[in-house]
Design a protein around this nucleic acid. Structure first.
Lengths: 213, 213
DNA sequence: GTGCAATTGTTAAAACTTTAACATTTGAAT
DNA sequence: ATTCAAATGTTAAAGTTTTAACAATTGCAC
């Protein structure tokens, strides 16, 4: 039964992974059932918001009772797309690329990092965490052949858009970008800019404002 | 002349680092002057929003002319708190902690990473990128003595809040958290949760929704 | 089995954010 | 000198998001 395009707006989209985390926490505490009030209090949001949010997906709870942790978790897991496995590659084996490749929990969460790519001839042929590093010139073909879905961009910012363009041409579905620029692509390719500097500057900005600008 | 607390709301706060980036780009292209229209087009927002945003800081442009790139950049730099230097430490020398310590651009941007801390006896005494790793039990005293302002949390999630609490007790001003949990503290301590998983799940969620849920 | 407390789904109001509109200012062309 | 085009600052409208309110539903106590 195929329904229309889900209307998940930006603020809700940012809350969804948090719901997922807090529900996992409850699950680990072996809590079977929760309420919009409890969940909201834990997360620092109103119960109204929790109910409103869950209603976007069409009533995940039961009136008078609350929400079943497991069922809700499963539902949100699915909405987040975490029921599928993803074929992933990383472009750029600098600090951050290396670090993401070493993050071995990734696979257990459904993200299979198939290969790393770099321009540096000294790196090509080596491996990180058991994952081979290939010449970035071979990336396009690799994506096509293996049907890679997610590309992680960890190249220097002046190479980032070009790298993204290659991924897009090769038919990638999503790009997770760690370079210090915004990347652009066609609407059917999802791009998430995870610019770490922006996050840090947000911190200093708030520190600065607190000291009564 | 001390003014009242600047009213920078969340959406603007998230745009500020982007303005900073795009203005730096213009500066590097040796563009001397820009307009809300040009800047907005580059950033994919309306000129109205650009003007509205800058007006929060009291008119950074000149009517009929536009905005001087250098002056505007300097002003935003200051608002972001990037005119100060910051004493920084990193707790947890795993993948991400290691990677952030190796990011040598940090120092040139005003962030001096003074020390790393970990529980692992094998790591204590080693150094990364010239920065020593100390026993995490010594962290509190270190923060107090050196007047550390920013703490970066890269410890496992089940240790994250405890680590934050120690930092807060020691008088830290801001916490940049990479652990997979939200951290909480008193209002006067700024906490920025840079949960990478959340960002990734946002990506998969959008990929999932595009495929007509 | 009735009433009560708990809790959702849903509707309405309030708050916030973005966009549009326009008066005002500036510099350049004639 | 006047006019015009290009811009900002600012006010108002539109749109979005959050919060509040409440009817409907459930389970439990009596």
């Amino acid at each position: 039964m195929s329904r229309g395009k889900l209307n998940v707006r930006e603020p809700l989209l940012r809350r969804l992974p948090r719901y997922y985390r807090y529900l996992n926490e409850l699950k680990n505490m072996e809590v079977k059932r929760t309420s919009s009030l409890e969940l909201g209090e834990r997360m620092g949001i109103t119960s109204s918001q929790v109910r409103q949010d869950f209603n976007c997906f069409g009533g995940l709870g039961q009136q008078g009772i609350g929400y079943e942790v497991n069922a809700l978790l499963g539902r949100i897991r699915k909405i987040l797309g975490l029921n599928s496995r993803y074929k992933v590659i990383i472009a750029g084996v600098g600090n951050i690329g290396h670090s993401l490749a070493s993050y071995s929990e990734a696979a257990s969460e459904g993200f299979d990092i198939l290969a790393l790519f770099d321009v540096n001839p000294r790196l090509i042929g080596c491996s990180v965490n058991g994952i081979m590093i290939y010449d970035i010139d071979d990336m396009k073909e690799f994506i096509r052949e293996k049907g890679v879905e997610i590309g992680i961009i960890c190249v220097p910012k002046d190479r980032a858009q070009a790298t993204a363009d290659i991924m897009i041409e090769a038919g990638i579905k999503g790009i997770w970008n760690f370079a210090d620029v915004d990347l652009y692509g066609p609407a059917e390719v999802v791009i998430e800019n995870a610019c770490l500097n922006d996050s840090l500057y947000t911190l200093t900005c708030r520190m600065n404002i607190l000291q009564c600008f």
